[in-house]
């Protein structure tokens, strides 16, 4: 598999603030990597480093073999489509102005009109007269019109309505199947679960995990709601894999990490009144990571 993006021990400090602190990960050709994290985690800073808007304090980025340490790093952007946020478009320009300028910078587009039609976008009004959703549409058209091999997007579906979000997911999946690599940041777990093949989680500038979505889903965390017909001390249940979430009448709500076998054997000795066991969804797995 060809590696499109390699991030090695990336650090970006703003004075004493460590916006990114030793982040390393790779993205293979055709993958859709969801870059997840809360506000201020370092997602946008990482993206800005990828595009060379800001310079790393340390570490290295390699995109299509071009290293951020070399002066020809900018050439990597000939294959990158970066999603400009709707608020970062020029208010006085029309949609056409943006699209023409994009063509002047990236070369003539064969699919510009097709994209305009697909997104039902009117390029005649000035950007200052466009709604937030329409600005986002314009940004997406600008990103996709040069048919890039690598898409970098910071919260791409923010301010798109659900129908357009679905249209966007379809486009991204189709592009990925054609070999286009995607790096997208998001707060939205459901979105990442739906569209991404891999997820990287970042918190306070440090990468917590990089996993295939399928592997993450396989992380065994179970929510167990159990009541007993006898008085049971919580100390009997708690161990390194089992935590009490809440005490309920005659029982507990627990989260159990890892295999259930040991837990089942432990409670088998007790007088159980009722029990329900549910596998955690991606959101709970995500929150579990952030607790660390």
């Amino acid at each position: 598999m060809e590696t499109i993006l390699k991030v090695k021990n990336l650090k970006k400090y703003f004075g004493r603030v460590k916006a990114i602190d030793g982040v390393s990960f790779e993205v293979e050709k055709g993958e859709i990597l969801g870059f997840l994290g809360p506000n201020g985690a370092g997602k946008t800073t990482t993206i800005r480093c990828l595009l060379d808007f800001i310079r790393p304090s340390n570490g290295e980025i390699e995109i299509f073999g071009y290293s951020s340490r070399n002066p020809d790093f900018y050439k990597s952007r000939s294959k990158i489509g970066y999603l400009i946020a709707g608020s970062n478009l020029v208010e006085q320009w029309t949609g056409y102005d943006h699209l023409s300028y994009q063509e002047a910078l990236h070369g003539e587009s064969k699919i510009k009109n097709e994209l305009i039609k697909k997104f039902s976008f009117d390029p005649k009004p000035k950007v200052k007269n466009l709604s937030t959703g329409n600005r986002q549409k314009l940004g997406l058209i600008m990103t996709l019109m040069s048919e890039p091999e690598f898409l970098v997007m910071d919260e791409p579906t923010a301010s798109l309505d659900p129908i357009l979000q679905e249209e966007f997911y379809k486009i991204i999946r189709k592009l990925s199947s054609e070999g286009v690599t995607v790096f997208m940041s998001s707060h939205n777990l459901a979105e990442v679960e739906k569209v991404c093949s891999k997820v990287a989680m970042i918190k306070s500038g440090k990468l917590i995990t990089v996993q295939k979505i399928s592997a993450l889903e396989g992380k065994k965390i179970h929510s167990v709601k159990i009541t007993f017909s006898e008085k049971v001390s919580k100390d009997l249940l708690v161990d390194k894999n089992t935590e009490i979430q809440e005490e309920i009448p005659n029982g507990f709500e627990l989260s159990v990490k890892g295999e259930m076998d040991a837990f089942i054997k432990k409670i088998a000795k007790l007088k159980i009144e009722s029990i329900s066991i549910m596998q955690a969804n991606l959101e709970e797995i995500f929150l579990e990571f952030y607790k660390k």
Binding site: F53, R77, S87, N88, H106
Partner: peptide, 12 residues
Amino acid sequence: NRTIEIVLSSAK
């Protein structure tokens, strides 16, 4: 106003 991103994201 961050519009410089338009030109900075090109291969120039």
